[in-house]
Design a protein around this nucleic acid. Structure first.
Lengths: 336, 336
DNA sequence: CACGTCGAGTACAACGTTATAGAACCGACG
DNA sequence: CGTCGGTTCTATAACGTTGTACTCGACGTG
């Protein structure tokens, strides 16, 4: 039922290698032999065995993308772009879930790497630099998303500090003085959260507003329910914010919901801004002001960087690229 | 840098096969040799080459999941469950995008199958039965989602007709008489849409309400923007529905948005229901009444069915399984 | 006409793994 | 004391593909 090069070769009356040459588009094959071989291929419905090819070539043509959750909208959208960009270069993407934990992330990075993938895109890296270096068994790796220090691997990111500062400044410019922040994370996964918090704090300082830690709500994860819970916490804790910067759009959507349930109007009573520009935020009620990273460019650069590592510059120094973002102001801060 | 069984064998002073035996947990290995081998493995950081293993075994341990869009929430959530269920059985999932088109679907099914995957889960199948049979080069396939006739492959689905009928009946029971439907699709991809439309029509008939085709809006795709556009179309076309059944939750979220922009209140002026129980719908304003399929069970059954095909019953007759759903009534039909 | 060059094709050896067959050793049993 | 059955281990041959080295003509070119 399943045929090999040998079967095609016998049917076409040529050697195995000639068939291989035809399959791989090798130039020096006479048109008539090529035609004969192609016919045999069609008749037998031959399909190359990729395991064998990979074994022989030492390449699999696959890269892995590791994200915290497959169904978190931001990562789903990011994954789409990565898959598209990779496909254009002939790569297949294996998508893995890290659950945001360092442990799972390590497992994915190490486990998947059983010579099955040529490279890894890790987003966002929760692992500390030294961890990365350790499991860095030579598999080219690109970090996609927030990272502070120049690590042991290439990375592509937006300027989270600047983005958070700009978003916070926007809220302040609207006349808000008690700006809360939602999404701080105490754990190791919180690199991105720390950067955004730094930007938030910087904007407050620039405006001469005192940093009030009671206005900073942490969130165990970045899901809608966590955003809603954080808002409820803020509302019952006595501090009365008039704006809230959420470190992720899903948090913001949860916040909108909790505010609605509390009978507060957005943006009249409370302005809300998020991060990520997920599609939900363009249709939510109200639509969501958000920091919109250029996801397509993020994905494309990550793939390009990885492809370059794999194909060419295997051991050059780590490179760091920054991708532009845009503050998309919508109803949740501007009203209608 | 990268080591092979041979390297481990030399270091441990045993044969290659013995190392292989240790790696694969073969029983008859003396404890001390096992220890020696394991130490060598650890020292060299040996990782098996999966391409070689796959070639030898004729298996890859990978299955593919083909969905229309990676970032459509329903499929993202479904993918998460499939990946989880597959991982429990030791399978790795390759996620592919079909774009909902038969062409891409055919390409994914045929292309990915270069002996790289042991099986395929196709969701939802837009391909006609004969197409499937053709590219069915022996790769075990499970169809996940709507399908009318018993096709050439196993499939797992919910009863779309019954679900749509129940949802429509719910709207009618609320006193609505002009119930619109959004999401009909003229193309081949519209199998699911046709079933849901049939259920909608059946419910109307049961209630003695005439079917009015002006109340049925088609949608080119099932995205928020399409739902919003469909509602705008309905509102300007003169027919004034008092409820709308959307064949997908993203359509419904788009509808909510368009209704909000038109100044209509939900559910007071118009009740809205959807399909899929995506997380957004639990936090939208208002929260969304929806047909909630048991996604985890869908995914688990699909994986089980596929695993069974691959490992055991390779050529038995196609099996069809139906998974329960639940009508989750929320604010968009019940009010607060 | 000898010579190199190029085109078209072939034979064979890898890539790293596991299945098969069997060797060497051990203890137990008739 | 020879034989059997079991355990532990090894040598070797695949799995299907592609790179290397090689053969055999045909075609200029000097």
């Amino acid at each position: 039922m399943r045929h090999r090069l040998k079967d095609v070769a016998e049917r076409a009356g040529v050697s195995v290698k000639t068939v291989s040459n035809v399959v791989n588009g090798y130039q020096h094959v006479r048109p008539d032999t090529r035609a004969r071989v192609e016919q045999a291929i069609a008749e037998l419905r031959y399909r190359p065995n990729l395991s064998a090819r990979n074994l022989r070539k030492g390449r699999t043509g696959m890269i892995a993308l590791a994200v915290p959750e497959l169904d978190a909208p931001y990562y789903a959208e990011l994954a789409r772009h990565v898959v598209t960009a990779a496909a254009e270069q002939g790569w297949t993407v294996l998508i893995g879930r890290t659950g945001g934990g360092t442990e799972r992330e390590r497992a994915v990075a190490a486990g998947i790497g059983g010579h099955l993938i040529d490279g890894l895109i890790l987003s966002p890296p929760a692992l500390a630099a030294e961890d990365l270096a350790n499991l860095h068994d030579g598999t080219p790796t690109v970090l996609l998303g927030e990272r502070v220090a120049p690590g042991p691997a290439d990375h592509v990111t937006i300027d989270d500090v600047a983005a958070a500062r700009e978003a916070t400044a926007h809220l302040i410019a609207l006349g808000r003085r008690r700006v809360a922040a939602i999404g701080a994370r105490p754990t190791a996964e919180g690199t991105g959260a720390r950067l955004r918090l730094a930007g938030y704090a910087a904007a407050l300082a620039e405006a001469g507003i005192a940093y009030d830690e009671r206005l900073v709500a942490s969130a165990p994860a970045w899901r809608r329910a966590d955003g809603a819970a954080a808002v409820r916490h803020l509302l019952t804790s006595g501090v009365r914010p008039d704006a809230v910067l959420c470190f992720d759009d899903t948090l913001a959507l949860g916040a909108l919901r909790a505010l609605h349930e509390a009978g507060l109007r957005v943006p009249a009573d409370m302005a809300v801004a998020g991060f990520g520009d997920i599609e939900d935020g363009r249709f939510s009620i109200p639509t969501l002001t958000t920091v919109a990273p250029d996801k397509e460019r993020l994905a494309r650069l990550a793939v390009d960087l990885l492809a370059d590592r794999i194909d060419r510059d295997r051991s050059g120094p780590p490179r760091a690229l920054t991708v532009p973002y845009r503050l998309d102001t919508r109803e949740s801060t501007l009203g209608r």
